[in-house]
Computed example of a mutant assay.
Amino acid sequence: MIKSKGLLSLVWIVSVVAVIGCTAVVVLTSRDIDKSVRRGFDQSHSNIYKLFILSLSISDLLVGVYTIFICIKAIEMEGSYSSMDMEWRASTTCSILGALFVIGSEQSVLTMVLITMYRLQAVMRPFSTPNIKRAIIAIAISWMVSIMFGFIPLFPFAEDYFLNSISFDDIKIFKTKVNQTDRKRLINWLRLMDNGSVQYDVDTSTEWGKLRGLISQINPSIPIRPLHEFGFYSTHTVCLPTLFPHQEDKSCMYSFALLLINFMAFLFMLVSYIALYRNRNTERRLPTNWLTHPPDKQRSESLSLFRPS
């Protein structure tokens, strides 16, 4: 899984430090929020930032948990991974770890976008009143979006889009591994077997479900079940999502949406912090008497010199 022992040791160190650090931040921030709630939780920027920090630390904690589990599995399968590769990548554990990584990483990005938005508002509109309810709603929506992106590929109704291939054991009439390209041809071939004399009672909502049902009725006395199913998180040995699938894969648009959201978030934060930096430099270049004599007041005073007394 992770061949280099040096890399595995480094991942272990980073993962443990991340989990301990994020857990400490979650605990301390939760205590501060609890104290603020008991005092009334006033509408202040500091309280809003505490909520953002809590959300960010939880999302980073999820990524740390993911990397620790990957390290544990790497140690368990050391020296025998080649014989367990297909079983591991097709396992439920690998899929859940992949979903956990997507949830944590996407929520981290979305939380940083929210922090940037509120920082922009605080700088560009310094006299605006912060709204803590909007912040809570924004954080809740971001978590819902992250969870949706992580778990949609695991739902049964979406398997036609995210299930890449299925392998069967001891089937001699066709190759044991069937991908999305072969699926439709195989379904049509099975339906034409025996010149249509065999009636297949298949009532499923997905193409993969139809294939399973048709294969199971080739010989009802010998049930044939899929041996391994490779989905959205089965491409990599460390259960990462398939961000760059083949063009013919139906999950291509989903992967493109994930990449686009992250790229747009990066552009937004880049432009926003450039604007904040320029605004700060502009304030530094203002004359020292600007605060006591704003431009409008200085202009009115200079014009008064030309008015008749």
Rank of each mutant, 00 (worst) to 15 (best):
M124Y: 12
R307H: 09
I274M: 10
K210R: 11
P287H: 01
C71S: 13
S234N: 04
F306V: 11
A24D: 01
T23E: 01
F157L: 15
R284E: 13
V123D: 05
L260V: 13
R134Y: 03
S255M: 02
I171L: 15
M148R: 03
G6C: 04
R225H: 13
M1N: 03
Q107T: 07
N164P: 00
E106L: 12
V16C: 15
V202F: 03
L303K: 10
R212K: 13
V25Q: 07
S59I: 01
E106I: 06
T111P: 10
A74H: 00
P153V: 07
R89C: 08
V238N: 06
D32H: 05
L192F: 03
D170G: 07
E76N: 12
D170E: 08
E87Y: 05
P223C: 00
L154H: 12
P153G: 07
K297A: 07
S82P: 12
L192Y: 05
S234K: 04
G6E: 04
I215A: 02
I48T: 06
V238L: 07
N188K: 15
I2E: 05
S309T: 07
S57T: 03
L303P: 00
V238F: 02
I2L: 05
W208G: 09
T111H: 01
G150F: 05
S91M: 13
D249K: 13
P287T: 01
S44A: 05
D201C: 01
L186W: 10
A257W: 11
E229P: 00
V27I: 15
F256W: 14
D169W: 13
I96A: 11
L51W: 08
Y200D: 04
N47K: 12
F168H: 06
S46Q: 09
V238Q: 01
Y200I: 05
G231V: 06
L7C: 08
V63H: 02
T181Q: 14
I152D: 01
T242H: 12
Q199H: 11
A138V: 03
A122D: 10
G21I: 04
C94Y: 01
K73T: 11
T176Q: 11
R125E: 07
I166T: 15
L192I: 01
P156F: 06
Q298L: 08
V123I: 12
H45W: 15
F151V: 12
I215V: 12
L7W: 14
I2Y: 06
T93L: 15
L163K: 07
S108M: 09
V17T: 10
W12H: 11
L214Q: 09
M264S: 15
K175G: 09
I115L: 12
V202R: 03
P156Y: 11
P245T: 06
A257N: 03
W189M: 08
Y233F: 14
S105I: 11
F162H: 09
S251T: 02
S167M: 07
G79I: 02
G40D: 02
R191W: 01
K250N: 13
F230L: 14
S82E: 15
L211C: 09
K250S: 08
M112P: 00
N179T: 14
N188E: 14
F268D: 02
D203R: 07
L267V: 12
L259N: 13
V26A: 12
V16R: 03
R191I: 07
L291R: 12
K73A: 10
N219K: 04
E78G: 02
E78T: 03
T206D: 09
Q217T: 11
L154P: 09
L303T: 05
R39P: 00
